[in-house]
């Protein structure tokens, strides 16, 4: 593929579309507004198409696993089978069908909740064995964890009304200031990345690494 097709045309498309959407976001201009709306709707269509692409890729991966008889290859067959069953059920029964809804409540929801609940056992065992006051930092981490656990469950206020207040202070003062600092750093980094993409310096999204193409 020529460098024009591989690099300059996608970069040009990205820059034009990004400029239209950026201008539309900050300025109220009727022609730009219509163009912006159309582009955003294209985006949702492409995302819907990407779902099918994702499914196709998943099948490709699992078929290859089965063909090569990889370890636990039968789980790949199971994955594809479940995917086909739910896809066909959704297609023929529709998303509001009672049977499909029952499958969700009885099977999917129960399995999901159970899997999530198992975490409580692991967290309990891990915190008992790992959270040790070895250093000052580890002690601070443990204290914060204890106060937040007591704040996030009614038992804290039942023991003493002071406990949730300490937990809320940890969340509101040291945590919030640190988090807001991180958010600002990410925002500045995102602006820099956006500018680099606009001027064609950022090529990672095209699958081109530095010095290539």
């Amino acid at each position: 593929m020529s460098i024009v097709m591989k690099r300059y045309i996608p970069m040009g498309i990205t820059a034009i579309f990004a400029l239209i959407l950026l201008t539309d976001y900050f300025l109220v201009l009727k022609p730009l507004d219509n163009m912006g709306k159309t582009l955003i709707n294209w985006g949702t269509l492409i995302a819907a198409y990407a779902l099918f692409l994702g499914c196709a890729q998943l099948f490709r991966l699992h078929i290859r696993r089965v063909m090569r008889r990889n370890r636990e290859w039968w789980l790949s067959i199971w994955t594809m089978l479940i995917l086909i069953i739910f896809f066909l059920a959704g297609l023929y029964l529709g998303p509001t069908n009672e049977t499909l809804s029952a499958w969700y409540t009885v099977i999917s929801q129960s399995i999901g909740i159970t899997t999530n609940a198992i975490l409580a056992f692991y967290v309990f065992s891990a915190s008992y064995r790992v959270l040790r006051i070895r250093t000052l930092e580890a002690s601070a981490l443990m204290l914060a964890a204890v106060f937040l656990m007591l704040t996030n469950a009614p038992i804290g206020a039942a023991i003493s009304p002071l406990l949730p207040k300490i937990g809320s202070w940890i969340l509101d003062v040291p945590n919030k200031s640190a988090q807001q600092g991180i958010i600002m750093c990410i925002a500045v980094g995102t602006i820099a990345l956006g500018i680099r993409t606009l001027i064609g310096r950022e090529t990672g999204y095209l699958g081109i690494t530095e010095g290539e193409g």
Binding site: F124, S127, Y128, V146, M149, A153, P154, I155
Partner: peptide, 24 residues
């Protein structure tokens, strides 16, 4: 469910203390 969560949190805290007493 909230009561269960409360008791679970309390158990974790109690065993955090036990683990650390043992460590010290």
């Amino acid at each position: 469910a909230l009561d269960a969560q409360s008791m679970g949190h309390l158990l974790i805290i109690v065993f955090l203390l036990i683990g650390n007493v043992s460590f010290i």
